[in-house]
């Protein structure tokens, strides 16, 4: 039972007030059920969450850091994409 036999899983936790699951970290587990239980034991010991998602790390596809400049830099000077040019009525809260 060595580490290399157990795949890596990414763990996502939704906190009590949170609306979305947030990446909490990763861990090793033999199957999905064990991954959820391991996540419960490793990442929710201090009341961090009320819902857990796990996904095998190999199914996560990531953007390529080398493409960073072409991916993200062009958004840099598009200030008009931010909805900051409107005057909000006073009655409107929570924006």
């Amino acid at each position: 039972m060595s580490n290399k036999d157990w795949p890596l899983w990414e763990v996502f936790i939704r906190s009590k007030q949170g609306l979305d699951h947030k990446h909490a970290g990763s861990l090793h587990a033999a199957d999905a059920q064990m991954a959820i239980e391991n996540a419960r034991d490793v990442y929710t010991r201090r009341m961090e969450g009320i819902s857990i998602w796990v996904v095998e790390s190999k199914y996560i596809h990531a953007s390529n850091p080398a493409e960073g400049s072409s991916f993200y830099d062009p958004a840099n000077d598009k200030a008009y994409r931010h909805p900051t040019f409107y005057d909000l009525p006073d009655e409107l809260r929570n924006m």
């Binding site: 039972m1 580490n3 157990w6 861990l27 090793h28 239980e37 391991n38 034991d41 490793v42 010991r45």
Partner: peptide, 12 residues
Amino acid sequence: GPILEQDIAISN
């Protein structure tokens, strides 16, 4: 423990 995650599980 045999693996970190189970070390924490049994300690919990």
